[in-house]
Structures are given as C-alpha cells and as structure tokens.
C-alpha cells in the first residue's frame, strides 16, 4: 500500500507500469497454481464430477445393456424404486445394518482404546493387536467369518452344539443373516476406529487427570467428567465415518450372502451393483446411487456443521 502511495506522488507513469507488472505477476502465479493443481483437478473431473453428473442424468432414463440411454422417463425410476418392495427392503436393511453396527463398533473400540491408553508395560503389543483388523482386507475378513458361520463345520455352531444348543443358520436364516454380516463388519471396523479413538485419548492433556487425582476422583468419575467430554470431537468424527462406511458396505455382502436370504442383506451398494451389473438396468441403479449420494451428503454435512468447531480446515 505504502509503495502505491509513493508511486502516485512521484510520477503517474510508474504507477501504470507497476499495475501492469502486478497484473502480469498475478497471471503468472495463477498459471503456476493451476499447474500444481491441474493433475488433481483433471482426475477429479474425469472420475468424480463427470460421473456424478452422469449418474444423475442416467437416473432419468431407461438404458440398454451397454449403458446408453434409450428413453427419457423423468422421475419414473425414482417412483418405481419407492414402490418396489425389494428396494424398500434394501433401504430398511441398510438402516438396520447402520443401527446394528455403528453403536456397537464405537462402544467396543472406545473400551479397547481406554484400556490401551493406560501406561502399562507391554501396552504397545496390545495396541498392535487391537489395530490389527485394519490390516485385514474385506475379502479375507469375510472368508474368516464365512467359516465361523458355516452351518455344520463352522466354529460358532460347533460351540453351540457342544453346549447342547441348536446350531444357527447364521447366513441362511433371514432372521440371522443381517446380524451375522453386522458381526463381521463390527470386527472389521474395530482396528480403524480403535486407532482414531486412541489418538483422541492421547491428545487429552494429562494435567486434567492429575488434578482430578489430587481431588481424589475415582476412575469412572474421570471417564464421565474428563474422558468423554474431551473426546467428543473425535467421537463425533468416528461416528460419522462409521455411518458413512456402513452405507458403503459391499465386500462382506458379496462374499457372505450375495444379498440373500430373501434379500435380507441386500444393502444399498449391493443393490446398485446387482441392478447395474447383473440386471443391466443402469437407469434404475443410477437412481439408487443418487439416493445413496444424498444420504452420504447429509451425513457429511452434519459432520461439518456440528463438528465444525473442532474441524479446522482453514
């Protein structure tokens, strides 16, 4: 600013030159910035923004097996979905699945993170074990549990029979299948959720606990009054991420149940996959994808809105 003022006082000519140079510099720095960002922008455009727009577009059409649009049908795909018992079942199963998996994942992970946050000898070993499921892929985890749930030779039914109970058709009984898939998912999610919560616990200032100790506060009092409140931003983040992940569940379903029995585990992403790549109804599948996008959008928005005090991106 002061440089500008000096320039005006001396000669108008330098003022103009100065502006010109500044403008040129701005153009150069703009191109430089774009050069650094261009690779990301191009890929986001091709594999994210364009497909998103295209999905919305497709959801208003009927398509052929190659995925080309044939007939514009407006909102009909959406109308069909909301009158289709299979899709309504899929939505119901998805929300039930979220309800089964999210709270239990958080409670178990929080428990693990709290006992693994104590300063004890060998604690590193336990932390490694608890985070281990993060390194286990969805395909491998599903195979592990596919055996555990096996009706005759699976470990769970063997244990049940050993104690005199009847075996359960974990993956074949419509009343149990979603529950079984949920157990698998909870186990798979533990590692990641545990790591994040442990990080949150470790960032709580230790003087809070020290002063509580001086006041003679008990363990559970400290948990209630210090740990949970101080951890709330992390908890909030973990809840949102777990919910979003639950809505995106696919691999477990594909290996364990293929959406069955009688569509009881046909979660929304599996339903999209089936509609698009088995039935070749890309329009209807796109309408489902748009609904999935809206659900995730709302979840992310809530995360930003209510988590914003602690989520600093700027």
């Amino acid at each position: 600013m002061s440089v500008n003022n000096v320039a005006i006082q001396e000669t108008p000519m330098t003022q103009i030159d100065f502006e010109k140079v500044k403008k040129k510099q701005r153009t150069i720095s703009f191109f430089k910035g774009m050069l650094f960002l261009l690779p990301s922008i191009i890929l986001f455009s091709v594999f994210l923004f364009y497909p998103l727009v295209r999905t919305i577009y497709l959801s208003f059409f009927l398509t052929n097996a190659a995925g080309e649009t044939t007939v514009f049908i407006g909102w009909q795909n959406y109308v069909n979905l909301f009158t289709s018992p299979i899709f309504l079942q899929s939505i119901k199963s998805t929300f039930l699945f979220v309800l089964y998996t999210v709270p239990i994942t958080i409670i178990i992970s929080l428990f693990l993170a709290m006992i693994a946050n104590e300063k004890l000898k060998g604690i590193g070993f336990f932390r490694t074990v608890y985070s281990s499921t993060m390194g286990i892929s969805v395909a491998a985890a599903s195979v592990f549990w596919l055996y555990l749930f096996h009706p005759s030779i699976g470990l769970l039914n063997m244990v049940l029979k050993a104690i005199g109970a009847d075996g359960i058709g974990w993956l074949t009984d419509p009343n149990w299948a979603l529950f079984a898939v949920s157990i698998t998912t909870i186990w798979m999610n533990l590692g990641f959720t545990f790591l994040i919560l442990l990080g949150g616990l470790q960032s709580i200032d230790s003087y809070l606990y020290e002063s509580a100790d001086i006041d003679g506060a008990g363990y559970f009092y400290k948990v209630r009054r210090i740990t949970i409140p101080m951890l709330s931003p992390t908890l909030f983040f973990v809840v949102t991420v777990t919910i979003i992940n639950a809505f995106q569940t696919f691999g477990q379903i594909d290996i364990l149940t293929q959406g069955g029995p009688v569509n009881s585990t046909n979660l929304v992403v599996y339903s999209i996959y089936r509609e698009a790549f088995m039935n070749y109804k890309f329009g209807s599948a796109s309408a489902q994808a748009v609904l999935l996008f809206i659900i995730i959008l709302i979840m992310t928005f809530l995360q930003f809105k209510f988590g914003e005090r602690k989520v600093h991106y700027q």
Binding site: F30, Y50, P51, L52, T55, L58, Q248, V269, A285
Partner: peptide
Amino acid sequence: LEFKGRDVLFYVFIATMMVPFEASIIPN
C-alpha cells in the same frame, strides 16, 4: 502459492470428500 480462485478450489477439494465412489461407479 497465492492466486485468484485458490479458496474456491479448496472448497472444490472438500466437496469431493462428499461423493462416495460407490455412487458414481456406473459412469466410472
């Protein structure tokens, strides 16, 4: 780097986190 439109682009990057890959898998 400081340039015009940087903040807008930053929000575009944030926005990409709201698009699940599963929702755009068909055109992809």
